[in-house]
Amino acid sequence: MRIAIFSDIHGKILLPFKLVDLYQKETGNKIDFILQCGDMGAYPNIENLDKATIKHAQYDRDELGFHDDFTKTNQEIQSFLDELNIDMICVRGNHEDHDFLDNLEKESSDKSIFPIDVYERVFVCRSGLEQKLETEEEVLNFVGIGRIGDRKGRTENRFIQDYERKEIKKLLKTKNTF
Rank of each mutant, 00 (worst) to 15 (best):
K51E: 15
M40Q: 08
N48F: 01
G93A: 05
E107R: 15
S79I: 07
K132M: 14
D162T: 12
D150C: 13
N85K: 13
H95L: 06
K170V: 00
F114I: 00
K25E: 14
D39P: 01
H95I: 07
Y163N: 12
D39L: 02
V139G: 00
K72E: 13
N85S: 15
P44C: 05
D60S: 13
E138D: 11
L129I: 05
T71I: 08
E167N: 04
Y119N: 03
D50R: 03
R2V: 02
A4W: 01
L140W: 06
T135R: 04
A42H: 08
E156R: 12
S109L: 10
E63I: 14
K132Y: 10
D82P: 03
E105K: 14
K166W: 10
L14K: 09
N103W: 03
S7K: 03
N85P: 09
V143A: 05
Q131M: 15
D110K: 11
H67N: 14
Y119Q: 01
V139R: 03
S127F: 04
Q58C: 12
E96V: 12
R165N: 11
T53M: 15
R151L: 14
G41A: 06
M40A: 14
L171Q: 02
H98E: 07
D87K: 13
C125A: 11
L101D: 02
V20P: 03
Q24C: 06
K132R: 15
D21H: 15
V118M: 03
P16F: 04
Y23L: 08
H98S: 09
I13G: 04
L140G: 01
T135S: 13
N85A: 14
L19I: 01
L22H: 06
I160R: 08
L49A: 05
Q58P: 08
E156K: 13
I5V: 15
K55L: 15
Q24P: 00
E47N: 10
S7N: 06
N157E: 11
K175C: 06
R154I: 06
G149H: 07
S109V: 11
A4P: 01
V118C: 09
E96G: 14
K25D: 08
D150V: 00
L84H: 08
R165Q: 07
T155V: 15
D60K: 10
Y59I: 07
K166A: 11
F6G: 10
N48P: 01
D62Q: 14
K175S: 08
V139D: 03
I54M: 14
D82M: 12
T27R: 14
N94Q: 09
E167W: 08
T53C: 11
F17K: 08
L84T: 08
M88R: 02
G38V: 02
Q161A: 11
K111W: 03
L129C: 12
L140A: 07
S108A: 10
G153K: 09
Q75W: 11
E138V: 01
R126M: 05
N176Q: 11
F159Y: 15
D21K: 14
F123D: 03
K55A: 14
Y43M: 10
S127Q: 06
E167G: 00
Y59G: 04
D60I: 10
A4D: 01
D82T: 15
C90E: 05
Q161W: 12
A4T: 05
K111I: 03
K106V: 05
V91E: 05
K12I: 01
G128S: 04
G144T: 02
R154E: 10
Y163K: 15
V20N: 02
F33P: 03
